[in-house]
Computed example of a mutant assay.
Amino acid sequence: MNKKEVFHFLKMFTQRELYFKESMIDKMEDNSNQFDIYRTINGENVYRYTFEKHLDHFIEKNPQISKHIKNSPLLIYKHNRFSYTPLHSHDFIELNYVYAGNVQININGLTITLNKGDLCILDTDVIHQILNTTENDLLVNILMKKEYFTSNMLSRLASNSIISQFIVNSISEAQYHDQYIIFNTQESEPLFDAVNGLIACYFDKSFYSADVINAYMIIIFSELLKSYKKEKSMELRKTNHHYIGDVLQFIEEHYGDCSLSDVAAKFSFNTSYLSRYIKSSTGKSFVAIIQEIRLNHACALLKNSNYSIEHISQQVGYNNITFFYQKFREAYQLTPNEFRKLHTPKKLE
Rank of each mutant, 00 (worst) to 15 (best):
Ile69Met: 02
Thr271Glu: 11
Asp262Ser: 14
Lys279Cys: 10
Asp56Tyr: 07
Lys11Cys: 15
His254Tyr: 09
Lys78Val: 13
Lys238Arg: 06
Met1Leu: 08
Leu236Val: 05
Ile25Ala: 15
Leu301Ala: 08
Lys303His: 08
Thr185Gly: 03
His68Ala: 07
Thr185Phe: 02
His343Gln: 01
Ile93Gly: 00
Ser222Ala: 13
Leu154Asp: 04
Tyr77Gly: 02
Ser305Glu: 05
Val195Ile: 07
Gly197Cys: 04
Leu74Asp: 00
Thr185Asn: 07
Ile218Leu: 14
Gly317Val: 06
Asp262His: 10
Asp30Met: 13
Lys230Ala: 07
Val6Met: 05
Gln104Pro: 05
Val195Tyr: 08
Ile162Thr: 06
Met234Pro: 03
Thr335Phe: 15
Asn71Ile: 03
His90Ile: 11
Gln291Gly: 14
Phe269Ile: 09
Leu295Thr: 02
Ile105Glu: 08
Gln326His: 13
Tyr255Glu: 14
Ile244Gln: 07
Arg16Cys: 12
Ile162Leu: 11
Glu223Leu: 05
Ile121Asn: 00
Phe192Ile: 13
Glu22Tyr: 13
Thr124Tyr: 02
Tyr307Val: 09
Leu87Glu: 06
Glu231Pro: 06
Tyr243Val: 00
Gln249Phe: 07
Gly245Thr: 01
His242Glu: 10
Glu187Leu: 08
Phe92Ile: 03
Ile218Val: 13
Tyr277Ala: 15
Met234Asp: 15
Asn62Lys: 11
Gly245Glu: 05
Leu18Ser: 04
Leu95Glu: 08
Tyr176Ala: 11
Ala100Cys: 11
Lys27Asn: 14
Gln291Ala: 13
Ser83Cys: 04
Asp246Trp: 02
Lys27Phe: 08
Lys232Glu: 10
Tyr307Arg: 12
Lys27Arg: 14
Lys232Leu: 07
Leu110Met: 15
His90Gly: 15
Ser206Trp: 05
Ile107Trp: 03
Phe183Cys: 05
Tyr19Pro: 03
Phe250Thr: 11
Ala331Asn: 04
Ile93Asn: 00
Tyr228Thr: 06
Pro336Thr: 00
Asn296Ile: 01
Ile290Val: 15
Leu119Pro: 04
Asn320Arg: 12
Ile105Trp: 05
Phe166Glu: 04
Phe207Tyr: 08
Asn152Pro: 06
Gln326Pro: 01
Leu225Ser: 00
Leu191Val: 07
Lys230Thr: 05
Thr134Gly: 08
Tyr208Ile: 00
Ile219Asn: 00
Glu60His: 13
Asp118Ile: 00
Asn169His: 07
Ala200Asn: 12
Ile309Gly: 08
Gln165Ile: 05
Leu348Ser: 14
Gln249Cys: 13
Ala194Asn: 00
Ser206Asn: 12
Lys284Ala: 11
Asp246Gln: 12
Ile219Gln: 08
Asn337Gly: 10
Phe183Thr: 03
Lys3Thr: 15
Ala265Lys: 13
Met234Thr: 09
Thr40Ala: 01
Thr271Ser: 11
Tyr273His: 09
Ala210Asn: 05
Lys226Gln: 10
Ile321Gln: 08
Ile199Ala: 08
Ile76Trp: 01
Leu301Gly: 15
Asn62Val: 04
Asn102Tyr: 10
Val168Arg: 00
Cys258Tyr: 11
Ser259Asp: 09
Asn115Pro: 12
Lys266Asn: 11
Ala158Lys: 12
Ser66Ile: 02
Gly197Met: 01
Gln165Gly: 04
His297Ala: 03
Asn152Gln: 11
Asp118Val: 06
